[in-house]
Amino acid sequence: MSKRVLICDDEPYIVESVSYVVRKAGFEVVTAEDGEEALAAARREKPDLVFLDIMMPGLAGDEVCRRLKSDPATQGTHVVILTARGQEEDERRAMEMGADEFMTKPFSPRKLRARILQLLGDPGGT
């Protein structure tokens, strides 16, 4: 069973581009459009990695991260914050919330793929 990656962003094109990179890397993709949906999907699908945007309608990404990390069911999930807010205080806050990685937009798909493989290991597909 291949590993699953949850991608949560309110911007569909970004979800699509990240999903393409994840799928090409050989992982299953689950998507969510906001925080609530992301939490529900995380509990339901038990993903191995979650990409979270911060600025989203409803629950903000860092809050979603805090809840994921405080829920025993989702505690082991890797969380990568992928945000346009690239300031240091944003990064520090994300780390405080328990995020494993902090990446800023715009991102380089090449580097994103390398990071995913580093975190989840190469499934040996492509």
């Binding site: 970004i14 715009p106 991102f107 798909p109």
Partner: peptide
């Protein structure tokens, strides 16, 4: 946000 999409898809 749009730049992220442009950058990502251009590189892909």
């Amino acid at each position: 946000t749009p730049l992220t999409s442009i950058k990502a898809f251009a590189e892909i």
